[in-house]
């Protein structure tokens, strides 16, 4: 499943609701769905503001894949700025130079099981969020 959004703050909540719907219906626990929602919103906001510099013509793409083991969400923008992700476990520093963006990235690293940033083939940046599933014996795959 794929969602394409304009780079306008506020639209990240639509992607959040779409992915939350998929995650819930695939049997991911409600508590974990909340983690997915928060991390996804932060990743989309990062893509909108920093990757696409809030240019509404540029798009943010959210690609979700679900298999037995994992929910993988790839958030891509059309910008070239690769964010520096903090290491796990995140050292929460509220002062220093902890910008809002820095806080967003700290949240993403804390809430995901795996996260990585790669340069996208089409000159953009892709942040890949991975959530492990606690298996309940069902199998739904999505693309």
């Amino acid at each position: 499943m794929q969602i394409i959004l304009p780079s306008i703050l506020g639209y990240e909540v639509i992607a959040r609701d779409a992915v939350a719907s998929l995650a819930r219906r695939c049997g991911i626990t409600p508590e974990r769905v909340e983690d997915v929602k928060t991390a996804l919103c932060e990743a989309c906001m990062n893509a909108i503001e920093h990757g696409n510099r809030s240019d509404p013509q540029r798009k943010v793409q959210v690609l979700c894949t679900v298999d037995e083991q994992r929910l993988v969400i790839e958030v891509s923008d059309e910008g070239g700025s690769l964010p520096m992700l903090p290491r796990k476990p995140v050292q929460w520093t509220f002062e220093q130079r902890a910008s809002l963006r820095g806080m967003g990235l700290m949240l993403i690293v804390t809430l995901t099981d795996e996260v990585s940033v790669v340069a996208d083939p089409n000159d953009g940046t892709c942040m890949r969020l991975v959530f492990y599933r606690n298996l309940v014996g069902d199998s739904v795959s999505a693309s």
Binding site: M1, I3, I4, P6, Y11, A18, L22
Partner: peptide
């Protein structure tokens, strides 16, 4: 207008998304 696009696999159940 602003446009949001959703691409879904053709499997029943995805209409819920």
């Amino acid at each position: 207008g602003q446009v949001i696009e959703l691409r879904l696999p053709s499997r029943l159940g995805y209409e819920r998304i």
